[in-house]
């Protein structure tokens, strides 16, 4: 356990991640579920960026007289993932709007009930 303080950032991220998961599982509202997925997504991004950090390093923009940079590779991956994330979120929200048109509700259980009746 001698590395205990160095692991705290990861633990905070795990807590955030589990909150996202909790929102997705516990709530029946479809918009709330998408928000939960977003929270989960941001925490995964944070995990990557945390791993990329080098103690004493700076942002990976090359300049004179700086020797130590943070790792640019996770930054690239997450940069694209964020934009893709918003695109997929938009797709999910579009589906929610269509579900609302078809069923008149966005609560999971009410949709199930309506399904059973038909």
């Amino acid at each position: 356990m001698e590395q205990f303080p160095g692991l705290i950032p990861y633990w905070v991220i795990m807590v955030l991640m589990m909150m996202g998961l909790y929102i997705v599982i516990a709530h029946g509202n479809l918009i709330k579920k998408i928000v939960g997925l977003n929270v989960f997504q941001v925490s995964v991004f944070l995990l990557y960026i945390t791993m990329a950090k080098v103690e004493g390093g700076t942002a990976p923009i090359l300049a004179e007289g700086i020797k130590l940079y943070s790792n640019p590779l996770p930054h690239v991956l997450i940069l694209t993932a964020i934009v893709v994330g918003v695109a997929t979120t938009a797709l999910g929200l579009a589906l929610v709007v269509r579900i609302h048109n078809a069923y008149g509700t966005i609560e999971d259980e009410e949709i199930d009930k309506l399904e059973d009746q038909t």
Binding site: A90, V97, N101
Partner: peptide, 20 residues
């Protein structure tokens, strides 16, 4: 691509009239 797709997505959401 990104600008056009975000504008497209926004306009399809906003251009749709709420029905009820």
């Amino acid at each position: 691509t990104v600008a056009a797709s975000v504008i497209t997505i926004f306009c399809t959401f906003a251009g749709r009239r709420p029905e009820e």
